[in-house]
Nucleic acid binder design. Sequence first.
DNA 1: GCCCAGAGCTGCGAAATCCGCAATAGTTAG
DNA 2: CTAACTATTGCGGATTTCGCAGCTCTGGGC
Lengths: 173, 173
Amino acid sequence: MHSEHVVSRSAEPKGSQETRSGNSTPPLDSVSLAIIEQLQEDGRRPYAAIGKAVGLSEAAVRQRVQKLLDQGVMQIVAVTDPLTVGFRRQAMVGMNVEGDTEIVADALSDMPEVEYVVMTAGSFDLLAEIVCEDDDHLLDVINKRIRALPGVRSTESFVYLKLKKQTYMWGTR
Amino acid sequence: MHSEHVVSRSAEPKGSQETRSGNSTPPLDSVSLAIIEQLQEDGRRPYAAIGKAVGLSEAAVRQRVQKLLDQGVMQIVAVTDPLTVGFRRQAMVGMNVEGDTEIVADALSDMPEVEYVVMTAGSFDLLAEIVCEDDDHLLDVINKRIRALPGVRSTESFVYLKLKKQTYMWGTR
DNA sequence: GCCCAGAGCTGCGAAATCCGCAATAGTTAG
DNA sequence: CTAACTATTGCGGATTTCGCAGCTCTGGGC
C-alpha cells in the first residue's frame, strides 16, 4: 500500500451534480490518477493491462473506471481536428458581460456550436470556442446569437488559421 | 436516437477526392465520419455495435478505426477536467508576434505545460492554453519562458476561473 | 477485352477481454 | 464488538477482439 492521500479533505457535501469542474470531485487518489494516465495514452487499453500497470486486479480497474466515468471525472472519447472532419471555421470569442457571468456562460453552453466555455479573469470575462461549418454559419452564431444574449456587452473574435497543438496528456508529464 | 444520418454531406461518388484543405488527410468518407461519431459518444464502444450503427461488418470497422488511428485523423483517449486532477491553474495566453508566427507556435508546442496552440486572425496572432500546478508554475511559464521567446512582442493572460463546458462532439449535432 | 494488383469488405474460429456475481478484507459509526 | 458500507479479488460465462483466407470492385497496363 504505497498509495497516499493527496490532500485529506473531509466532509464534502454530496449531491452536487453541476456541469463540470465543480469541486465536488473529492479524493482521486494516486491509483485513479495512474489509471487515468493509462487511458490518456490509449483509451481502449484493456483493463487487465491497466491493472498490471497500476497494481490492481482487472475487476477493480473496471470498477474504478466505471465510477470515474459515472462521476464525470473523465470521459473516454475519440478526438479529432475539426478541420479534418469538415468544420472549416473555428474561432475563439472573448466577451465582456454585465451582471452574472455564469448565466451567460450557461446560455453559451447550450449552443451546440460552442465546444468550450470558460470564465476568466482579465480583460475578458468569458472565452468561448466556436466550431462551424463555414463563414456564414460562424457569422450567424456570433452576430445573431451570442451578441443577442442579454448581458453580453461586447465580443471580440479570433478566427482560427491553423491548429498547432492539441494534447490530452494532463498528468502525463 | 440513433439517426442514421451523419453530417449532411452531398452524395459522394466513391472515387471522388474532393480537394480538402491541404493536409495529408485523405478524403474521409461519410462512413468513417459515422464511425468517428460513434466513438465520440463512447470511445470504448465495441466494433460490432459500431458496425451495426454504420452498416458495416465488425472486421471492416476494426480496419477503418485502426487506419484512422494510424493516420492520426483521430485518437481515442481519456479526457478530464485538469482542475479535478490536480492542476489548479490554467490560463489562455494571447500573443502578438513579429516575424514568422509559426516558429513561435512551434516553440510553444514544445512546452509540456502548453496544451493547445492555435494561430489566429484578430488582435492576437497566437492563442495558447497553459495548464499548471500552481501560481508559481504559471508565472514561471508565462514570464520566464513564453515572453522570453524571440519574436514574442506582447502577451495577455486570461486566468481560468471556472470551466463551464468542454465537449468532444464534433460532427454529432 | 483480358489479366493483374491493390484496396476494402466479409465470415469464421481461436484467443483475449469484458461482465456480473459472490466471497473477502478494510473502515467507520454506533 | 457488531453492523453497514466500500473496495477488492477470483471466478465462470458471454462478448469482443484478433488474424487470416477468400471474395468483390476498381483501375492500370497491354
